[in-house]
Design a protein around this nucleic acid. Structure first.
Lengths: 145, 145
DNA sequence: ATTAAGTCTACTTGATTGATAGACTATTAT
DNA sequence: ATAATAGTCTATCAATCAAGTAGACTTAAT
């Protein structure tokens, strides 16, 4: 299960993806539209900025925006930025690998099964991008309504 | 990430799968061979018994054993028994479904992406069984060593 | 200077995780 | 019967993490 934080991050990224190219978007705007507690959202966006996917501008006319086109960032990348591992076990994680303390990976059946699962998951999440997260009920340049 | 508890459960099930048909296996045996804290293991095995996959016998010659052949229980079932959902989001879970409070599933891109991921994961975990978890370095009827 | 808006530090609260202790109950063998 | 064996139940504990909140601080535009 993805944490609430990760879910919020993905929602926020999806919203910013829909506003890509329109300049900075207010935290408060994202918070309202995506129903994310604003203070919590602040810390998440900051983290995403420090990770390099977002940029920000302070002061009037400020806000957050995607550094690159939404199609450049995959869902796998996005999840890892805030949510950590995608694999189901540390001994099978690519980016957060940790050796199993008490078992031999060469002979461990669980390890093998989870590796196969991880590969299948990654195959999907590395193909999908932030573009997928743009809400169809939330058009790119909505002016009215 | 699977919790420690779930990992322990899968290891224990794998061990019992390798001993299937040999009668009851001591908790202390599983604990030693799989390096699982015995008191923690007790609660896990009890849970698995209450879920119906294990049976137990008290007193001398007692222990735990699989109710059915290991090939009858899939990894998906095993994980759900102790670890809860397999899906990455509640709104996409089959066995632990919860409606998204603040978004419409019909138009939510995240929902769609996670559904596809879930299907791919399940396709694997519903095909693999406890047989896969039998340790190749831990032969079914080891007498020596 | 004033206002707008992001940034940083520091909590708080509650739940979950991982683990342990000890008493209790059922079974087997003597 | 009784002792030994082995699972069962109740209770607890410390540590961590998740989720959310508060408020002071910095930067930029007008």
């Amino acid at each position: 299960m993805l944490s609430k934080k990760t879910q919020y991050a993905l929602k926020a990224l999806g919203y910013l993806a829909g506003r890509y190219g329109e300049g900075p978007v207010l935290i408060s705007d994202i918070s309202k539209k995506k129903k994310i507690p604003i203070k919590f959202l602040e810390t998440i966006l900051l983290e995403l900025k420090q990770a390099g996917v977002l940029e920000s501008k302070k002061g009037k006319g400020g806000g957050y925006y995607l550094v690159e086109s939404p199609k450049k960032t995959t869902l796998a990348q996005a999840i890892r930025l805030v949510g950590g591992p995608i694999a189901m076990l540390p001994c099978v994680s690519i980016n957060f690998y940790e050796k199993c303390k008490d078992c031999d990976e060469a002979t461990c059946g669980l390890n093998k099964a989870m590796q196969i699962t991880r590969d299948a998951t990654l195959k999907i999440l590395e193909k999908k991008t932030l573009v997928e997260l743009i809400d169809r009920a939330d058009p790119p340049s909505a002016k009215g309504g």
